[in-house]
Design a binder for these strands. Sequence first.
DNA 1: CAGTATCCTACGCGATACTG
DNA 2: CAGTATCGCGTAGGATACTG
Lengths: 122, 122
Amino acid sequence: MEAKVEKYQNNGNCPVRQVLDRLGDKWSMLVLLILSEQGTLRFKAIQRSIGDISQKMLTVTLRTLEADGLVSRRQYAEIPPRVEYELTDLGQSLLPHINRLAAWAVQHMEEITQHRAAYPGR
Amino acid sequence: MEAKVEKYQNNGNCPVRQVLDRLGDKWSMLVLLILSEQGTLRFKAIQRSIGDISQKMLTVTLRTLEADGLVSRRQYAEIPPRVEYELTDLGQSLLPHINRLAAWAVQHMEEITQHRAAYPGR
DNA sequence: CAGTATCCTACGCGATACTG
DNA sequence: CAGTATCGCGTAGGATACTG
């Protein structure tokens, strides 16, 4: 008794679209993956781990993840400042899924690359 | 004995980043989800199912998915034209992961919404 | 170190019109 | 119906400089 056909319509009230819109930015999933693998990390450590993310975008990404409740931020009153990030419980509950996606990527990238190369036009 | 810390660096040879870059656009995951649930579909049917995707973007998205080998395209010599899309085996192998992500989204959206609302500033 | 504050640009995407 | 072809805009996100 469910309407199954149109359930992805209308951005406002579709959870799938809301979540995908968030994780679909350039850095969110990557930051989550890194926190998942390496546990608690400082700002600089995350940045180094990604390598080519700007300071601005790492800040923005972390703020958004924090606002969504996926990542927690803890700052210490020291000089120089130290700020550490880690996954919340909610974040931890999401991560197995992202990890499997990443594992799939590693496993099938070769195949995708070959498809692309064989695709007519380009 | 692996270098584990920096493995997400450098866009060129990191499968995780390559795949995430692809699925991270506005429509790819959604189209995959729909094809996964509803099987073989015509262009118009996909468009109706999403509702607010433009013709151009659906075309572009489907072309990319086809080039990557995730979706197959079959066109019939009829008038008016009929073109049908479905997941390839490679696409099918990816979809369980995306489906679990979507399920997680449905299950936890409420919680995320509350976090956002409670977040200071905005 | 861990941020903010500006400025600026590429390009993702939508709107519209046309074709086989 | 299932596309292509243009045009044009908004904004994600990079570069740079400054602060506590």
